[in-house]
Design a protein around this nucleic acid. Structure first.
Lengths: 341, 341
DNA sequence: GTCCCGTCAGACAACGTTGTCATGTAGAAG
DNA sequence: CTTCTACATGACAACGTTGTCTGACGGGAC
């Protein structure tokens, strides 16, 4: 293994100078800088992460924390984060913390306090539902870890966030249904206590209001963002005489569930009912009919959050970016919506 | 931050003794051992990963390497690996290397050689298609990294592997179709140069042979394990007068594609054709009809591989386990198979 | 010519742990 | 009673890097 000492000897300088060059510190003459760089390249020198982080108290690691790893949403974020991490020379760590129970902040601390002592990541990326709990972001910041939230607005100045305008996106989908003549539209909610759930519901109600359509409590049913809850919700909404002509499911997995629920009841989409999802996750184009939905730039969430984190602790020289960033969503028209009867 | 020195002072011993206790080394009296443990607990001591790995040249990291992170198969493995990592105090790192090109071994080296210099993971988990390339496993072993392969047999004594009996599983599925009276069964292959592709195909042919059914070249069509290739393959097989009465897709994503292909041609499964998948991935129960398939214990692949890796470099005291481990698969009967017309 | 300041480079210590070696003790074997 | 061995503990150095401090040099202001 080649160390800084080897490079230093080859370049005829001290180790400290090599260190300065490697870390792009000032006060090294250009000629020397070049000589060191050449020597390092010749020897194939790569700094030791352990030594580095032992001495400098930085870990060059970014951690993605989620309550579950097996959902396409988290997956895509991970892919984006990893892309940026690899490009910037950081390591991506993943961690899950399922079932937070009553006191998620405390559960979170219990789980991660020891880990912070062993090795503190330079930054943490939080996704829903953790992103929605302010206490978690606050605690991490206080522990000296940079935080980026995905999919939820940040109330803290120190915490960066990236998301889409969920309200507007939900409006787009609902408007599409209304434009197709649907006047009674069922709605399946997401997990409770998440901003996405509320925002999407708000968007739905607001479009109904704009068009003077009545809001019917009975057309709204709970869900948990997963397939099974979509099937259940779909059955609740469709298995009755006065069933709605369209259903807005708060994400694609649940929308896929509604399609299956329909089949169980002998109803085929989009002939017998229209259905829209949300997220444009992988399943959206694998169902029949393929789902009309809203695309979230999930991969970009990952890259933007990671880039922003790195910018933070590399000592951002430029202007301080606004801590809340909103990316564009886009309506994806497929085959699950048809004109109302 | 509390260090070993703090613990040592509180327990009235030397740092070395604390180190011995923390690492479960011998030659410490039980009484002392207890005193040190208590002191450590009282102070909430957690060893510093950086210092540890700098000195001991172990990283306490396990890396999962795949060509893509966004498939349910890899996802489940990751979940399993993470579970074990968290329990054993290891960190799970993830890395992707897409598009290996002509010389995958070289591409692999190019990508990971620098990383090994910075920080060498204690072990690496390889999934297909990397698991199928012997040169990669050999290179990593030679670099001093423990290797576990998933889903492919290991030819090296030093490399552990875990998988199911793909041949037997494919036989189970094919037999099921034959028992339902199907005599002309289409087959969609997986990515080429992967053992899973060959084994599944072999299983299919072998059952045909057992039952004296003719093997028709025209009923076999290529695929790449992804949804789109399933749609294409499905169209090729089903869009003709002499179409098969059943299709064996080499995984669930492609099977879902065949269902969609059928819809495009006005054919509905399982009324007009039967279809089976492979893997029992998430999509298998989200299609209509839900897919009859074979369940691979993918999560267990992750936990077993990780456990085995850790056992390796923690200096396995017990007998040396056989390096190839085969887990049980199971046939999952759902709704996509019906009796042949 | 003197003083000061900005630039540039190196010597040295420190980060928190583990490997190596030396030393001490107690019991068994001779 | 001595010698040997196995067990127990500690002192010290080392891992590879970066932070701190010190010093040399050159140029501009007085």
């Amino acid at each position: 293994m080649t160390t800084m000492l080897d490079v230093a000897q080859r370049a005829g300088v001290s180790v400290k100078t090599v260190s300065r060059v490697i870390n792009n510190e000032p006060y090294v003459q250009d000629a020397l800088r070049e000589r060191v760089k050449t020597a390092a390249r010749d020897l194939g020198y790569v700094p030791s992460a352990s030594a580095r982080s032992l001495r400098s108290r930085r870990s060059y690691q970014i951690q993605l924390i989620s309550h579950i790893m097996t959902t396409p949403y988290v997956h895509a974020i991970q892919a984006g984060a990893m892309q940026t991490c690899q490009a910037e020379g950081y390591q991506l760590l993943v961690a899950v913390l399922p079932d937070c129970g009553d006191d998620p902040v405390d559960a979170f601390r219990q789980r991660f306090e020891p880990q912070l002592a062993t090795k503190k990541p330079d930054g943490v990326i939080l996704v829903p539902p953790f992103a929605d709990i302010d206490g978690i972001g606050a605690w991490l910041t206080q522990q000296g870890v940079a935080v980026a939230k995905i999919g939820a607005q940040s109330t803290l100045d120190s915490v960066f966030s990236v998301r889409i305008d969920e309200f507007a996106a939900a409006r787009d989908l609902t408007s599409l249904l209304v434009e197709h003549g649907h006047r009674r539209i069922g709605f399946i909610r997401g997990r409770e206590n998440e901003s996405a759930t509320e925002e999407r519901f708000r968007g739905y109600r607001s479009v109904l209001g704009d068009h003077g359509l009545p809001f019917e409590e009975g057309l709204v049913t709970p869900g948990t963002f997963d397939f099974a809850s979509g099937v259940e919700g779909g059955v609740r909404l469709l298995d009755r005489a006065d069933r709605p002509t369209a259903v807005f499911a708060s994400n694609d997995d649940m929308a896929a569930g509604v399609i299956v629920a329909g089949h169980r009841l002998g109803l085929v989409a989009p002939r017998d009912f229209s259905i829209v999802g949300f997220d444009d996750s992988a399943i959206a184009e694998k169902t029949w009919p393929a789902l009309t939905t809203v695309r979230q730039p999930v991969l970009a969430f990952g890259t933007v959050a990671t880039t922003e984190l790195i910018r933070t602790f590399e000592g951002a020289p430029g202007a301080s970016e606004p801590p809340n960033r909103i990316l564009d969503h886009c309506l994806v028209l497929r085959d699950s919506v048809s004109a109302a009867p």
